[in-house]
Simulated scan of single mutants.
Amino acid sequence: MQLLRSRTAALSLLAAVALFPACQRATYVARPQLAPTTAQPVSSSLPDDATAAATIAPYRQRVTEQMTAVLGTAPVAITKNSGESPLANFVADLQRMRAARETGQAMDLGVMTNGGLRAPLPAGTITTGSVFELMPFENELVVLDAPGEVVQQLFTYAARVKMAVSGATYTAMPDGKPTDIRIGGQAFDPAQDRLYTIAISDYLAGGGDQLTFFKALKPRGTGVLLRTAIIDHIRDLTKAGQPVEAKAEGRVKSN
């Protein structure tokens, strides 16, 4: 067994272990008895391998530059909370706008759950790193064409937690059922023979966060990562001289 002679070697070993498929089963293989060795403990006192450090340095610098690039400014933090969430409103709205741009078709609805958002957008400077913290997943923005009965299931799901849906308003009753659903300002009729376009992440379209009623629908891809759509939207706001803002604005009413 070779000694770990530097932190670089130790990190390489840990990376190899991390990349080894966890689902594989360990197989016992008899090995000859080896002479005892003295392993050197891994600690911050070990010097970096100069060659490895030199190889990694330009990549580390590039990543640092990209992550610290300023995208825009938020007057106050954009956070998520139970019920209608400013952060979910912000992301669901930009999903509709970006999906419409990519497909050339208006989007009736945009859906984003609080569970799909991992961190708030901070007050003050928003960087690329801020968006990676918000959306660390490689989720693609997709479009679903949903019949009325599936849209009804969406609002039934939403009403239980008073989740807002971009492009719509509704009233959540005490029993957790939705009433007075309006899409684009028009009363929603689940029996109407039409399809509703929904901008959503591929994770939620596949039934994530218990949105299982979407699983039967075939999503249309946009080729755009949701994280990229968020970054581009913030940049567009900044180019237009606008701050990054969002709020809960009464999309969900309680009765």
Rank of each mutant, 00 (worst) to 15 (best):
Q192Y: 05
L141N: 06
T171Q: 09
V143G: 05
P147F: 10
F155M: 06
A205R: 02
Q186Y: 02
P136N: 09
T127R: 09
L154A: 12
A172I: 15
G148Y: 05
T171R: 10
E140Y: 09
K162V: 12
R194M: 10
P122N: 08
T197W: 01
S201F: 03
D108N: 15
I198V: 14
P120V: 06
R118E: 14
Q152H: 07
G176V: 15
I198K: 01
A168Q: 04
L204R: 01
A119W: 11
I126M: 02
T171K: 01
I183Y: 09
R160H: 13
Q192K: 12
M135L: 13
D145K: 14
T171C: 02
V165S: 01
P122D: 10
T113K: 13
D193K: 11
L134P: 07
P120F: 09
P147I: 09
S201C: 01
A146L: 15
R118F: 13
L204D: 04
L144R: 02
A146W: 12
S201Y: 03
G115E: 15
A199T: 05
M112C: 14
T128I: 11
Y203W: 07
Y196H: 08
L117E: 14
M173C: 06
T169M: 03
T127F: 08
V150R: 07
E149H: 13
G185C: 00
N139P: 01
A187M: 04
L109C: 15
N139I: 06
F155A: 00
P136R: 08
I200V: 12
G110R: 11
P178L: 09
I183G: 04
A187F: 03
S166D: 10
T113M: 15
V161I: 14
L117V: 11
E133V: 02
M135Y: 08
V151H: 06
Q192M: 07
M163G: 07
D189S: 06
L144I: 07
V111P: 01
P178M: 10
S166L: 03
D108M: 04
P136E: 09
G115P: 03
A187V: 08
Q153P: 00
D180R: 10
A159K: 09
E133R: 10
S130W: 11
D189E: 12
D175C: 11
I200S: 02
E149P: 00
L144H: 04
T169V: 06
Q186F: 03
L109Q: 15
G185Y: 02
Q192G: 00
V150Q: 09
G184C: 04
I183C: 04
G167S: 07
F137R: 04
V161H: 12
I181S: 00
T171D: 10
I181W: 04
F132V: 12
A168D: 05
L109S: 14
V111R: 03
P122C: 08
V150D: 13
G206Q: 04
I200M: 02
A164E: 09
M173N: 15
L117D: 12
D145G: 03
D108Q: 11
N139F: 05
M135G: 00
M163N: 09
P122M: 06
D145Q: 15
Q152F: 08
D202F: 03
V143I: 08
I126V: 11
F132L: 13
A187E: 10
D189R: 01
V151N: 05
F188G: 00
